[in-house]
Each structure stands twice: as structure tokens, then as C-alpha cells.
């Protein structure tokens, strides 16, 4: 029973929620990308690969130029480039989007490790110096608010950016003309096309945007949290983000909620030094909670109607 009281105690500490939010943001960015991509009708399970590629090139750039902003730009572009591959293969060649996504994930895993060996030889990938990564910023004044100040306002800059993006993307998708068009393309591309909307342009943009967001997440992971690159450092986060996106019913805030559950799990696990329970059993918690939640009321989810279906102009 000590384990339970440990966890209960933990739940009231700002540290835990600060870590939760940070971990959740790593998942949220690719999940948001997934939302945009799938809302436009392109299944995207390649967030893992896009994120990993972003992380790698972000670190390479950061080591070369010692400038986290430039490096973040490179990471975002690298993620976008991977997404562009997915877009070409799945939109232009109408390939199976699952196959393409899996291929990108494998490709990214192989490419990054292979390039480590080419660039760094059999040595370490270098480490960024203490002030060379993306900075953690305390927002003056607000960070002094008890509890919430620490949770919300003492975070990496990417966290703030991501939270702004979360709201922006929600507004974009559900309040703006562009969002209406993206959703129209994902629901019924023929209808959108006949209404004079450029389906291919929207899908390309959406998929590439998902890559940019995943790349940003990769940058956060590599030059914000870890300050180096290690093979497969994304560690399945892209897949968890995929799950969060579906769990969140293809909505930005829904995905965010799911990301918080997974983030909380990670954060609880990180506290294993002060919880008297098997850290391994503890680690199962978020996944079991998710299963239980899915088994309950929120199970059913239906994706955009044309998700995964390549668009052939003139078809019905």
C-alpha cells in the first residue's frame, strides 16, 4: 500500500506535472502533425521516422554551428523532407500509405545510424554544451505562481511553442477556411475537387506540415532534452503519438489529452527512486489506463471518411 500512497503524494507535486507536460509535448507535436495529415486524408504512421530524422539532423547542425535556432530549423526541415517522401509516394504514386509509413520508419532508423558511422566514425556523436541546446525559459512573474508557475511557466521554449501551436491548429482546423478545406479533402476529396479545391496541394501541405511538426519534436528531444543523438532515441514516441491521435479522435485537444496520460505515465516512472513499487509494473500504468478508458465510453472513433484512400481525379 505504500506504493499507492507514494503515488498519491506524488500527484500533488508540481515536479511531477512539470515533467508530465514536458513528456506530453514530445508526443503532442507529432500527434498534431498526424491530426493534420489524417484530417486531409493521408494516413500517417511515419511520425516516428520523421521525428528521428529531425532529431539526428538537428544534432548534426547544432554541433556544426553551435546555434540551437538554426539547428531547430534544420531539424524541422529534415522532418518535412521525410514527410515529403511520404507525400510523393502516397499522394502521387497512390501507394499504400501504411507500407510507405513503415518504410519511412525503417528508413529513418537505418539512415540515421548509418550516417552516424559515416560522420562520426565509430566514436560518440558529440554533445552539445550546456547553453547550446534549446533553452528552458521561466516566464518572469508567472513562474512564481504556486504550483502552476512551476508546471506551466518553467519549461523548455518548445513547450510554449507547442501549446500555442495546439491552439492555433485547433482554430485552423475548425474555424478557418483552410481548415474547412483540409477537412473537406479528408472527408470527400471528390467533393472538394469539384468545388474547385486543389486536393493534391492540400494533401501535400498537410503531410509536409506533419513532418515539420514531427521534426520540431525531434529537435526538442535531441537538442532540448538530450543534447545529443542516440540511435532510435525516439523510442516509439511516434507510435505513441499515433495512438494518442486516434485515442483523441483526430482532434488536437483530444490528442493532447491522450498525450498527457502517456506523459503522466512517463513522469510517474521517472520518480521510481521515491516510489516503493516495482518501476516496471508502474510503467505499465499509462498503457493499462488507456486500455481501460478505451474499453469504457470513449472507445469508438471514426476517422475522416477518406483517410487512407488515394485520390484519383475523376473517380467516383
Amino acid at each position: 500500500m505504500t506504493a499507492i500512497s507514494d503515488i498519491l503524494h506524488l500527484l500533488f507535486t508540481a515536479n511531477l506535472w512539470q515533467a508530465t507536460l514536458s513528456a506530453a509535448i514530445l508526443l503532442l507535436l507529432p500527434a498534431l502533425g498526424g491530426v493534420i495529415s489524417e484530417r486531409s486524408g493521408v494516413v500517417n504512421i511515419a511520425m516516428e521516422g520523421m521525428m528521428l530524422t529531425g532529431a539526428f539532423f538537428g544534432v548534426v547542425a547544432a554541433l556544426a554551428w553551435h546555434n540551437p535556432w538554426l539547428a531547430t530549423g534544420v531539424a524541422i526541415l529534415a522532418g518535412g523532407l521525410m514527410a515529403a517522401v511520404h507525400a510523393v509516394v502516397s499522394i502521387q504514386f497512390r501507394a499504400d500509405q501504411i507500407v510507405s509509413g513503415i518504410a519511412i520508419n525503417i528508413f529513418a532508423a537505418g539512415l540515421t545510424v548509418f550516417l552516424i558511422n559515416r560522420i562520426f566514425g565509430l566514436q560518440d556523436v558529440g554533445h552539445l554544451g550546456p547553453n547550446e541546446g534549446l533553452p528552458y525559459i521561466s516566464i518572469g512573474g508567472l513562474d512564481q505562481i504556486p504550483f502552476f508557475g512551476k508546471v506551466l511557466f518553467q519549461q523548455n521554449i518548445v513547450v510554449y511553442v507547442a501549446l500555442v501551436l495546439l491552439v492555433l491548429i485547433h482554430v485552423l482546423l475548425f474555424r478557418t477556411r483552410i481548415g474547412l478545406r483540409i477537412r473537406a479533402v479528408g472527408e470527400h476529396p471528390q467533393a472538394a475537387d469539384t468545388a474547385g479545391i486543389n486536393v493534391f496541394f492540400i494533401r501535400y501541405s498537410a503531410v509536409i506540415t506533419s513532418g515539420l511538426l514531427s521534426g520540431l519534436s525531434g529537435a526538442f528531444l535531441a537538442i532540448g532534452v538530450s543534447n545529443t543523438f542516440v540511435p532510435n532515441m525516439t523510442d516509439g514516441r511516434g507510435y505513441i503519438a499515433l495512438a494518442a491521435m486516434i485515442f483523441g479522435k483526430w482532434t488536437p485537444f483530444g490528442a493532447f489529452g491522450a498525450c498527457l496520460i502517456f506523459g503522466l505515465g512517463e513522469a510517474i516512472y521517472a520518480n521510481n527512486s521515491i516510489i516503493h513499487a516495482s518501476p516496471y509494473l508502474l510503467s505499465m500504468l499509462p498503457y493499462i489506463i488507456t486500455l481501460v478508458v478505451l474499453a469504457g465510453v470513449v472507445g469508438r472513433s471514426s476517422p475522416p471518411a477518406a483517410d487512407g484512400i488515394p485520390y484519383v481525379p475523376g473517380s467516383e
Binding site: T176, I178, L180, A184, E187, H188, A191, A305
Partner: peptide, 29 residues
């Protein structure tokens, strides 16, 4: 079209406007 080019989850208004949507502010529908 014979098979309607309508999006069932959209409102009538959104369906009609699609492609020539009225916009306010930066890009709000």
C-alpha cells in the same frame, strides 16, 4: 453529380460554401 459531392459531417452551409467560403478576419470561416 450522380453520387452527391456532399460531405455528410459538414453543415449545409459549409457544403454549399466549400471552395468559395466567405471569410472574416485573417481566414475565419
Amino acid at each position: 453529380h450522380q453520387h452527391f459531392m456532399l460531405i455528410p459531417v459538414f453543415t449545409v452551409g459549409e457544403n454549399v460554401m466549400l471552395g468559395r467560403e466567405p471569410v472574416t478576419g485573417p481566414d475565419f470561416y
